[in-house]
Amino acid sequence: MKILVAVKRVVDYAVKVRVRPDRTAVDTASVKMSMNPFCEIAVEEALRLREAGASAEVIAATVGPAQAADTLRTALAMGADRAVHVLHDPDPARPLLPLAVAKVLRALALQENPGLVILGKQAIDDDCNQTGQMLAALLNWPQGTFASKVIIDKDKQKATVEREVDGGTETICLDLPAVITTDLRLNQPRYATLPNIMKAKSKVITKVTPADLNVDIRSDMEVVQVDEPPKRKAGVILSSVHELLDKLKNEARVL
């Protein structure tokens, strides 16, 4: 069984993002870009399933500009077998939307015939949390979203997925092929080791365009303006409970 893993290149989680002065988008010029943390978890899960014998091949895929190949290389250095790069030069005014990405991934899934597609539950740049669900719908496959545990039964061609829900854990059983999106506690991603980085150098990254896949990724959404969230006012340290009560009464007016 093959596993297809979708990965996205985003501004590194630890970077303080800034809005471009013209307020059209977030500034990404000379900003550290890394793999979306939830995608890292998706790659890790696919590798673990392969190592457990549930899968024979892990294919990483991304939609993005030329530099997104770095993200695929990270996936290959973690241990993915090969990669597909769907080239797309972004236009900040017309961002690539989850539906377009889901259509691309659907086309890839139909080509590759994976038993499982694993995606991060959301990307930390746009926070959409839609691609996996849309992909499942387009493919008409079952979905296990926000997975915190995945078990594959190869013989029965079933996946058991645990997902965290309010007040506990929900366990669902899916027929393969299926779409799974990862939550934070699914696993702890591995590091890229030197031997694996070396091996990754000879792994293949296939380049295609959305047109090659017959997918129209035109966006019908326009970004008008990007703003930082309002800053929270600094707090104050009070010297006594008395003062606190006074402020709660007379300033905050909550008492």
Partner: peptide, 24 residues
């Protein structure tokens, strides 16, 4: 459709964020 976009709220802006914090 046009939207007014706020920055993604899923990143916490503190430099020097360490792994476990990142997770948290």
């Amino acid at each position: 459709m046009a939207i007014l976009s706020l920055l993604s709220s899923s990143r916490t802006r503190l430099s020097g964020l360490r792994e476990p914090l990142r997770q948290a």
